[in-house]
Design a protein around this nucleic acid. Structure first.
Lengths: 198, 198, 198, 198
DNA sequence: CATGAATGAGCCTTCATTCAT
DNA sequence: GATGAATGAAGGCTCATTCAT
């Protein structure tokens, strides 16, 4: 069989890369960088572990790449709520679901891993510093402020409130919902009480 | 000189054992069983890694011992709130602080590790099953119920509420408070809103 | 270039596996399971110690596999004498040489190790029980009985005689013949006197 | 209590030393130098493992001391048969029992360990060379020669015959008689056939 | 590009030996 | 003399990474 031409090769490369990243995200986000073996990612992606090293120089690089992508995606998600219709509280509810629901969760989990795990690469530490909690708080400040004005959001220091809100969401994500016996992700209603106040 | 008498030996043994367990608790609770190397515990305790094995047969045994102790301690902490004076809400606030403050936190963190980590010993899985979240919920049911009657606690399914409350606390604990740049443990006020309701 | 096809891979795997087993047999049979380090086997096979674990899960598994094979081989050797021409005594002489000569010796030595060493895996203990001395005695009973009838074999309890004969052979094997200064494997003539009688 | 005087101390030293050596002989002779842990010897002697090092500098020294003693004892046993009454064959039978019976067996087993085990100290290798099989053969040559003259012993090369005889005895000793399932020490009758011939 | 064989650093654990008491 | 706490070298095993095919 004739060798593939350049374009085909490029496409294979991209598809494969995406396939690997998807698998890696799935595994890294649950198990962290230390708890993840390259063989797990390979198995999840349905390829040999050797092939991983054609697309990523090392486990660290793969992890770092994913964190970078997740950081950008998280910021996008924050920004995207401003495109929605509805009250400020509606927007915040939407974001809450976005973070806790299946779709976006792995990204936020990965960010959490990057922030809290020991043994992450130096580059990841830099990313964590660059995309600090504050940068996400800034992104949400306008909608929360508007909510305060409409009375939907509790009075008080907004930076504190938003930080607390994001911290709770971030940590909750990490709970294995399968394991109902032990943990239960709170309903939106209960969660929203934190920000709406009495 | 005569060898040490039994009492002295026991004291040394107990002190060392405690010293090791304290060090191990510190490290395990932050890094989990997989992320913890025996050499880390040894370094934290200021002893050689070989000595660990005079006191504990294996890493697994050490971890299991700590989890067992933490489970008992956690249940005690739950029960202890009934000895306090004050309204139901006061008691819940007290427990909240107990869990999030420096003193009790490592124990609860360890329990969280036991519940969520991969690679924990079989014995720990049994302990987790035995001391399930439900058993803790049961412990708190009376005080929450009383709070509902006095109107301090929001109406609604109490098991759900308490589970949510404990889940939030459990996950929050795992955040490095030092890491102010990234996370902020919510103030009691904000947390309490979840249970007091609007 | 395309990856190796299945057949090639299997061949490599099988060759390597055989190479490792040969090396392991050599070392285990002399030094027993405790006295053998995986690095010795690796060195003997000319590979890295890490590679051993691609082919065998553990030292125990490797040892067990070899013992199993040796047990089967030993039984085959016993049976094979019935295919030979010649008098009963000829057949027994042949078997004696088979056991003491370079070719079959390591297998019988390994069986001896399995029977007499401390620290052998549980599975090996089962194998030893399954392939007990008695089962080998049973295999040889017909030829010895025939020998008794022809007068070549001494009168008396055959089970005792065969057991004694096998015990002597088994223990003799373990002598390092290189080390002539200290031990001398008896000549067949001398050995045969035990079974032929006065 | 007043400290012991010199003589008392010396006696304790000797008694202890003997107690340790007896225990060590028991364990070493069965399990070899590699399979024996210092803690096993301490347990067998009923003392702490630390105390072993008051009497013997190291495991190697302890082993070497025992081998030395066993070598001397073995030679004595050989010589002692000449003090007996009876025919040459009677003397050889006596020696055979001496070697295989409970009393002298550990010494001969230890010698066997010294000769055949890997990982014995250099000093032991020298001892093995010094007290080679040949020296034992020499010791027995007269009685065997006499037996040949009386016709009790088979004709042929005596050095070969004696070497074979000792090799068989040495290796048989190592069999665990308990382990009847697998091995059976031959009866004297069967063994004697080797030397008496047809 | 794709595979899996191969390597070796590093972790858990054991055990001979030392030493304070 | 006697004890057992303490140390560290070394062995079994895992897994990230490399490389021949």
């Amino acid at each position: 069989m004739a060798p593939l031409n350049d374009e085909q090769l490029h496409q294979i490369r991209d598809e494969r890369k995406e396939q690997i990243m998807e698998a890696a995200l799935k595994v890294f986000s649950r198990r962290g960088i230390v708890g993840t073996k390259m063989s797990m990612i390979a198995a999840e992606a349905g390829i040999s572990h050797g092939l991983l090293y054609h697309y990523f120089k090392s486990k660290d690089e793969l992890f770092t790449t994913l964190v970078q992508m997740a950081m950008l995606g998280a910021q996008d998600a924050m920004k995207s709520i401003y495109d929605l219709q509805g009250s400020p509280l509606d927007k915040i509810k939407y974001l809450t679901k976005e973070i806790l629901d299946e779709s976006g969760r792995p990204y936020f989990m990965l960010i959490h891993q990057a922030r809290t795990s020991e043994g992450v690469p130096e580059k990841v530490k830099e990313l964590v510093a660059q995309y600090s909690m504050n940068s996400f708080v800034d992104e949400l400040l306008p909608v929360f402020k508007e909510g305060q004005q409409t009375g939907e959001i509790a009075a008080g220091d907004l930076v504190e409130l938003i930080s607390a809100y994001l911290s709770v969401l971030s940590s909750l994500m990490m709970l294995n919902i399968q394991d109902e016996e032990n943990y239960r992700i709170p309903s939106s209603d209960i969660l929203m009480r934190m920000v709406t106040g009495p």
